[in-house]
Nucleic acid binder design. Structure first.
Lengths: 190, 190
DNA sequence: GTGATTTCTTGATTTTTGTCAAGAGCAAAA
DNA sequence: TTTTGCTCTTGACAAAAATCAAGAAATCAC
């Protein structure tokens, strides 16, 4: 069983292996070189992608700086949900931090999943609710924690990331400057 | 047409008026006195409620303080989605800030909507995605804005709230102390 | 209306975080 | 290897926001 199948099985709860095969067959493997974009702000996001290998950074450019919203790792989905679903132009860019491989499904093909698997809408809904809850949690971290507490919490749950991506991106994602991040990090070593 | 019907029509896209009537009939009107709880942390959230009249505060209690997550106003839904969907105990409390009336549907009755209206799963999914996007936006505000910028942005879009609820709750919801909120507010008057 | 709460404001102070600038460390490219 | 970028760190300083404490203002209960 591929990781994508495994993921869909565990997160969406699809257990019938014929259904699984049908779903997975709609996804196409694509390679993205380090530094290349899976999605550029201003374009339409036409794909939902599963990261098979590598790392991707989702960010929003403002006048002054780039705000990293999320880092997508192996074994998770990535897309600009807003653009993918409502077919608006994307504010978000998604760029590969390393050579990356993704299984992508176009919006057109994605719709077919619902036709193939009757229970899909329900599963999909539950999946999105889980994503919603993660965001709620993240907002709570900004309302109730200091930069250092957010650092600690993220470090505990994402240790591996710290030696895989430029730390400035993690800093941005946690809502602090690279300098603050660096100082907090130093404190932990002492 | 009641506000609830209006809401379901515009946000969920249900246009057939028979369907609308069926859906709305599953909701029961309840009154909540000022200070009373629609949901208490530690309980199961068994209802999805539409605020017909009044104001409700959603908050999470930590050791030191209460963090206001959201203030639900007339014309919107409120629930602890996590608890409602996955039947976990709720971390969130929902308390009435004024005498309040809500149209509530139990989880059991809510499920019937999907059976009554075939398109419901799709509409519901889109609804949740809109909620997801609002949260994304809110996270972005914490990553890219100062307290004052968050104040300004929220004030522009929610002027009415400022003379309807204790300001400390708005402060908490925007991720700042009441003192900081008060000082920013003063600056705006000068 | 009066007293009791609660909410809001203000000042003084401390802590946290951001900004600017310089340099060190490292890795990729020439 | 040398050069060139990029990333990270560090220090000095400035700004933002939190804390503490007191008092004013508004609201609620009687």
């Amino acid at each position: 069983m591929t990781e994508l199948e495994q993921y869909i099985k565990s997160y969406f709860g699809v257990v019938n292996s014929d259904d699984l095969k049908k779903i997975v067959s709609l996804f196409k493997l694509t390679s993205i070189k380090k530094g290349a974009f899976l999605l550029k702000a201003g374009k339409h996001c036409n794909n939902l992608s599963f990261v098979q290998l590598g790392l991707l950074r989702m960010f929003i450019s403002t006048d002054e700086k780039e705000i990293t919203q999320w880092i997508s790792t192996k074994g998770y989905f990535t897309t600009d949900l807003s653009s993918f679903v409502f077919e608006t132009t994307s504010r978000i860019s998604i760029q590969a931090l390393t050579d990356t491989e993704v299984y992508s499904v176009t919006k057109t093909d994605y719709k077919k999943i619902g036709e193939l698997v009757p229970k899909w809408y329900e599963l999909e809904k539950l999946f999105i609710i889980r994503c919603f809850i993660i965001l709620e949690e993240r907002i709570f971290s900004h309302l109730s924690m200091t930069a250092e507490e957010r650092y600690d919490y993220f470090f505990e749950n994402n240790r591996e990331l710290f030696n895989q991506v430029p730390l400035q991106y993690i800093a941005s994602m946690l809502g602090m400057t690279p300098e603050t991040f660096s100082r907090i990090r130093k404190r932990k070593l002492l």
